[in-house]
Amino acid sequence: MTPNQVTAVSAAFTFTGIVLLATARPSLPLGIAVWLLLAVGYAWDSADGQVARLRGGGSPAGEWLDHVVDSTKLVTLHLAVAIGAFRFFDLGSPLWLLVPLGFAAVSTVTFFGMILNDLLRARHGVSQAAQSGGSSPLRSLLGLPTDYGMLCLAFVLWGWQAGFMVVYTLLALAALAFLALALVVWFRKMDSLA
């Protein structure tokens, strides 16, 4: 398979899960199906870069396609949560719908910030190796609530409204806290490029 074909397979799994969130009545089996679809899509998304490296390097068009699919996924996933919750949840107050809408904004800004960091650092001659900040077990644990795999797993609760709303809201707050801290760090790194 070509890297673009791998990206297409990833998109097919991912967007099937997203459409189900917006269109099908929540249930435990649906939540498990959405989790599996999103997780398999995520695994395939991770594979396209590996396939590109195995085939001797990717192309700018392939990298562009991967980023467009990723950014579309991040926005539409949260919009599908808002649509599904509006259609099927007994919310009591529509204010909870601000959580997935806010989560969509946070995810978009985070993704764009990471892409822009890479672009500006490369433009100023900072190598990819110099860009990595390293990791530790503690750092990995602290980042777990913001991991896309954890978000995928949360959809197992899609059939249990109260549980899903609590876990999803906590993940949204963790993503917001991560973004707030990351923006400060990213700005300092960008400022040091001048």
Rank of each mutant, 00 (worst) to 15 (best):
F111A: 12
L95D: 12
L144C: 11
G163V: 10
T76Q: 03
D147H: 15
L157V: 08
G159K: 02
T7I: 05
A122D: 10
I32E: 01
G41S: 08
R53Q: 04
A80N: 05
M190D: 09
G58D: 03
D66F: 07
L97Q: 06
A177L: 13
D118P: 00
G125T: 13
V19Y: 04
S93A: 15
H78Q: 15
L37E: 00
L79H: 07
D66A: 12
G149M: 12
A80E: 01
A33H: 09
A175N: 09
P60N: 04
G56M: 11
D191R: 15
D66S: 08
M150W: 13
W96V: 04
S27K: 07
V75N: 04
F187N: 14
M165L: 10
E63N: 12
T146G: 10
A52M: 07
E63M: 10
W160H: 06
L193E: 11
G143L: 15
H78F: 12
V68W: 05
G56A: 08
G143K: 08
W160D: 03
V40R: 10
A104Y: 02
K189D: 13
G17F: 05
G133P: 02
A182Y: 08
G58V: 12
H67L: 11
P60L: 12
V99M: 03
K73A: 11
Y168S: 04
S192T: 10
L181E: 09
L181I: 14
L79Q: 06
W35Q: 05
F103V: 11
L95V: 15
F13I: 08
G31F: 03
Y42K: 09
S93V: 09
W158G: 00
L138D: 06
V19A: 13
V166I: 15
A130K: 12
F89D: 11
Q5E: 13
W96Q: 07
H124M: 13
F15A: 02
L116W: 14
T110G: 08
D147T: 15
A80C: 05
L77Q: 01
N4G: 07
A8L: 15
K73M: 11
K189Q: 15
I83Q: 03
V68P: 05
T72L: 14
D48R: 06
A180D: 10
S107K: 06
V75D: 03
P94R: 12
P60V: 11
C152N: 14
V68C: 09
M1V: 14
S127H: 08
L97K: 03
W158I: 05
A180T: 14
A154K: 00
